[in-house]
Simulated scan of single mutants.
Amino acid sequence: MSGKPRLTYLNGRGRMESIRWLLAAAGVEFEEVYLETKEQYDKLIKDGFLLFQQVPLVEIDGMKMVQTRAIMSYIAGKYNLYGKDLKERALIDMYVEGISDLMQMILVFPFSPPDAKEKNLESIKERATNRYFPVFEKVLKQHGQDFLVGNKFSWADVQLIEAILAVEEKVPDVLSGFPQLQVFKTKMSNIPTIKKFLQPGSPRKPPPDAHYVETVLKVFKK
Rank of each mutant, 00 (worst) to 15 (best):
L102R: 07
V58N: 02
K87S: 13
L57V: 06
G98W: 05
L86H: 12
S100E: 12
V55R: 01
G98S: 11
L81N: 04
L91I: 06
G62E: 10
V55T: 07
D101K: 08
M105V: 12
Y82L: 06
P56K: 01
G77T: 13
D85A: 03
M72C: 04
K87G: 12
I99A: 03
D61I: 04
Y82D: 02
L91Q: 08
T68A: 12
L86N: 12
M65L: 09
K87E: 14
D101G: 09
P56C: 06
L81Q: 00
D61H: 04
F109Y: 11
E59S: 09
Y82P: 00
S112E: 15
A70D: 02
E97I: 10
P56S: 06
G62A: 09
R69K: 13
M63D: 12
D85C: 01
I106N: 06
V96M: 05
E97A: 11
D61V: 02
D61N: 07
G62N: 10
K84F: 10
R89E: 08
E59T: 08
R89T: 09
P113Q: 14
A90L: 09
T68M: 14
Q104M: 14
K87N: 13
G98K: 08
Q67W: 00
T68G: 12
G83F: 00
M105P: 09
V96Q: 02
F111L: 10
D93I: 04
A76K: 07
Q67K: 03
L91W: 07
I71D: 01
V66F: 01
F109Q: 04
K87A: 14
V66D: 02
L91N: 08
N80W: 15
M72L: 08
M105R: 11
S100F: 10
G83N: 06
M103V: 10
L91F: 11
G98F: 08
G98L: 09
N80C: 15
S73Q: 15
L107Y: 12
K87Q: 15
D61R: 02
I75P: 05
M65I: 04
S112M: 15
I71L: 03
L102S: 02
S112P: 11
N80S: 15
V66G: 08
G83H: 01
K84S: 13
P113E: 15
I106P: 05
D85L: 05
F111Q: 06
Q104G: 13
R89A: 10
K87C: 12
D93T: 04
I106W: 00
L81C: 07
Y95M: 12
G77Q: 14
V55Y: 05
K87R: 14
G83S: 03
L107T: 11
A90G: 05
N80A: 15
K64L: 13
I71E: 04
S73P: 12
L86P: 06
M63S: 11
V58C: 10
K84L: 11
P113D: 15
Y95S: 07
P113W: 10
G83R: 02
A76R: 06
Y82K: 03
I71M: 07
S100H: 11
D101N: 10
M65H: 03
M105K: 12
S112N: 13
P56I: 00
Y79W: 07
I99V: 07
